[in-house]
Design a protein around this nucleic acid. Sequence first.
DNA 1: GTTCAACTAGACCAAAAAGGTCCAATTTGG
DNA 2: CCAAATTGGACCTTTTTGGTCTAGTTGAAC
Lengths: 169, 169
Amino acid sequence: MQITRATDYAVRVMIHLAGLPTGTSLRQSELSKATDVSGHFLSKVLQQLVRSRLIRSQRGTGGGYTLAVSATTVSLLDVVEAMEGPIRLNQCLEEGPSCDRKSWCPAHQVWAEAQLAVAQVLGGAAIAKLAAQAGTVSPAQYRRHDEPIWISGIPRKGRGKRIHRSHSP
Amino acid sequence: MQITRATDYAVRVMIHLAGLPTGTSLRQSELSKATDVSGHFLSKVLQQLVRSRLIRSQRGTGGGYTLAVSATTVSLLDVVEAMEGPIRLNQCLEEGPSCDRKSWCPAHQVWAEAQLAVAQVLGGAAIAKLAAQAGTVSPAQYRRHDEPIWISGIPRKGRGKRIHRSHSP
DNA sequence: GTTCAACTAGACCAAAAAGGTCCAATTTGG
DNA sequence: CCAAATTGGACCTTTTTGGTCTAGTTGAAC
C-alpha cells in the first residue's frame, strides 16, 4: 500500500511547474535537476503526465514541458490517479461484481471508508497551494530572481517569447 | 496503493475466527472453505499470522488455528500491519532520513495526513465488531448449529499449553 | 530545406513483490 | 512406536517496479 516512485516524481514535477510564472516551459533536463530524478526515468514520468493531459509538451528547439491545467484546481489526487489509475485500496472495491462476498462482507465497508478518507485528503491538496508553501519555505529552490528562469532555453539572440504557447490542435 | 491478496485473506480469517466461541480451533481446510481461499495459499497467510502472534497454531491430529488475541482489541489496522508491516503511503514517510527533501517538501505533510487518515479508519475497526456484523448479515456463513464447531480442536487436558515454540537460535 | 535541439516511443533489464504449489517436518492418537 | 493428520517452510512462476538506453520524430531557426 504505497505510491510508486514514479508517482512521487510526478508530484514533484507538478509542484515545481506550479511554482513558476504561468505558462513557463521547462526542459526535461531542468526538471530533472529540480526534482532530483534521473533524466531517463523522468522522461517516462513526463510522458505519462502528458498522456493524462496534466502537462503539455513542445518538441524541437526551445521546447519543453508546460502545465496544461490550472494549478489551483488540480489536486494531489488527480496526479496520483493520472499515474496509477483510480485508487483502489482493495481489489473488492472495483466497480463491477469483483467479489461475491461484497454483499455481506463486513470488511468491505471499512475498506471503502478508508479509501474515501485518503481520497479526501489528497483531493483537498491543490497543487497551487503546495507550490506556494514550497516557495515560502525555500524560495531559492523554486525562484531565482537573480536571473530569469527561462533564459536557459534561449539561443544567443535571447528573446524570451517562449512563455506563451498557442497550441491549437 | 492496494493491500495484497494475502492481507485480504488474513482479514477474512481473523473475522471468521472472531465470530466463533472463544478458543475455538479450526483446521486449515475448514478455514479454507470459510474464506474461499485455496488451502495451499492460505497456509502461507496463516503462517504469517502465527508469526505476528495474532493466532496460535497446533500441529498434529486434532490441531488447527486459534485466535491468540482479544477480538475486541485487535483492529483491521493490526491485521494489515501484521501482514505488510507498518503502513507507509510513500517512501519518504520512513522513520530515518529517507528523503532529503523531507524538511521542505510541501507534499510530505499531505502524504502524512493521508496515511494518518487511513490508519485511523482501519484502527477504529475492531475485528469483533466486524464479526458481529457478519453474524447479523449472514449467520449461516459463520455459525453451524447442527454440529458443534469446536469439536475438532479441544484437547482433553484442555489447557493452553499448546503454544509450544521451539525457537532455539 | 537543412540542421539540430528537444521530446517520443519503445525495447530491454534486474530486482522485488505477489500469487501460488508442493514436499518435508512435526505432533498426536492409538 | 508407528502412522495419519497437520502445519511449516522451501520453491516456483508471473507481474510489477524502477531504471537505462537507443533509435526515431518533430519543429523552430537559420
